[in-house]
């Protein structure tokens, strides 16, 4: 099996960003009230993760060359924030419908730790590091994030209609649901090919 396929399955299921790495929890809880908004957020995350994976890979080569890799966190944050601003301007101009669909979620991702996480893991965890594997890892991590968000939104929509004890309504039951989902996803950890 080619290495990139491992990355795809790993990114979506085994190392799911939300449910096994516990990154990006705030949008996971905040934007999972409706499936449509969850999908919008998810698409924005996939897009941004793919873009940052490519850019930060190039930047990391530069940092490695100068032997100042300890700067990677601050450089990556800077680049991600700037990149999202640029993407926002371009999308606003050329694809207004996409802009309204992504809406507020695009600027929200500026400070999303999952995006920074994927940029850093690209340069620390991948066995073969090239621009293609980085990109694949970024995209599949984004898909994993979207999957978790969509499942959560689906469950929360159903929860609206179920009888929950008064004290557990709202965030408590959401956190319990999230923990059960995370436990379910740990089953993928034993997956082997």
């Amino acid at each position: 099996m080619p290495y990139w396929l491992y990355l795809v399955i790993g990114g979506i299921f085994i190392n799911n960003f939300v449910l096994s790495r516990f990154l990006g929890i705030c949008p996971f809880l905040g934007v999972s009230r409706k499936t449509e908004t969850a999908l919008g957020m998810g698409l924005a995350v996939i897009f941004v993760m793919g873009m940052t994976s490519i850019i930060t890979f190039g930047l990391n080569l530069l940092l490695k060359e100068l032997n100042i890799q300890y700067l990677q966190t601050i450089v990556f944050i800077l680049v991600i924030a700037a990149l999202i601003q640029l993407i926002e301007i371009v999308i606003k101009r050329f694809a207004p419908s996409l802009y309204t669909a992504l809406g507020v979620y695009l600027p929200l991702i500026t400070t999303n730790c999952a995006v920074l996480g994927v940029a850093i893991m690209n340069v620390t965890e991948l066995a073969t590091q090239n621009i293609f594997t980085s990109f694949v890892n970024g995209i599949s991590s984004g898909i994993g994030f979207t999957l978790a968000l969509l499942i959560m939104a689906g469950i929360r929509e159903k929860l609206e209609y179920s009888e929950i004890p008064e004290k557990f309504k709202g965030f408590p039951i959401t956190l319990i649901t999230a923990s059960i989902m995370a436990m379910a996803f740990t089953a993928f950890a034993g997956l082997s090919f």
Binding site: I68, L71, V75, L78, V79, Q85, L86, I89
Partner: peptide, 19 residues
């Protein structure tokens, strides 16, 4: 490090201004 960081910052701020 100083050159790299300021360089990136200036590069992106110019880019955003142009965009």
């Amino acid at each position: 490090p100083v050159i790299i960081l300021t360089g990136i910052a200036i590069f992106f701020s110019i880019l955003i201004a142009i965009f």
